[in-house]
Design a protein around this nucleic acid. Structure first.
Lengths: 154, 154
DNA sequence: ACAGTTAAGGTCAGTAATAGTCAAAGAAAG
DNA sequence: CTTTCTTTGACTATTACTGACCTTAACTGT
């Protein structure tokens, strides 16, 4: 199945897809009510799944008539974007950054779910074999694999 | 008979077989409970029996709603040789060894001349960015790239 | 205008639910 | 007897979820 957070995430993404303009306005209280949870759960989902790194901008206003707007930003064409993401990988990469980048690439369709899983698995496996410099190895491996994928598909 | 680890391994493989899509999601705590052992025993089994080398990818998530997913990725028969070569790559790899392996893979037609150049270039590029542990990185990168190539072309 | 009320949303720290790591003890194999 | 594989458990890390308390904006009556 999946957690409540996963379901709320999916729900918001579905709304975004059917919105026509990649943005959706929601009521925190209403959404929390629909999912039978506390309002702050919505903040949790937004904070963990709809980050800028993953391509989302979240704006909100308090008070009467308040709202939360989630915008899915799409920049350049996908390949350019992928290359930029690749460039943004520094000499070190945490596990979380790796996840965010993979999620983003999968999102824009540069890699398939299967490729995403493969890359994640490979990186994890390799990183698991060493004790020092895990972040450095992660960065190198991801760059190498993505570079290969992009090169061989273009 | 076999050890506990063997039984757990067999159990997971059985689940995989009857899964239809070569992947299965399990709960570490639940499985440990079923086999009356400590949870970390499951990690041991996964680490020793469900490695990439043997054709498995293991993904997991901690926290509430956490899980462990085991995916079995199948490689074709005519790539067995390549897989064996892959296995033979140790934890360190000199430049010379790298060349030898690439040459052999190109010879037996597992990678094309273009892929050979690509891999060599990527490895060189990455290895050039660090000062220590070049041999370790070379081994990791080659394993990763070859595994990816073999996987995505089978 | 002003003050009070109502109607949003935000923060943060704590609890619970999972899984991961590592080293040491125990068992099996050579 | 030595080495390698298995098993355990204490400690750590991560993710999800909740609730009490805080902030902001609009509305309302005088």
């Amino acid at each position: 199945m999946g957690t409540l957070a996963d379901h709320i995430e999916a729900h918001i993404k579905k709304m975004l897809k059917s919105s026509g303009d990649n943005s959706v306005e929601l009521s925190r209280a209403q959404l929390a009510n629909d999912f039978s949870c506390v309002p702050s759960q919505i903040n949790y989902v937004l904070a963990t799944r709809f980050t800028l790194e993953r391509g989302y901008i979240v704006e909100s206003r308090r008070g009467g008539g308040g709202y939360i707007r989630v915008v899915h930003v799409q920049v350049e064409d996908d390949l350019t974007h992928a290359v930029n993401l690749l460039r943004s990988i520094g000499s070190q990469l945490s596990e979380r950054q790796l996840e965010n980048i993979l999620a983003r690439l999968k999102d824009i369709g540069v890699i398939s779910p299967r490729e995403c899983r493969l890359v994640r698995g490979i990186v994890q496996q390799e990183v698991g074999t060493i004790n020092q410099g895990k972040d450095v190895l992660r960065a190198s491996l991801l760059r190498a694999l993505l570079f290969y994928i992009i090169e061989s598909e273009s």
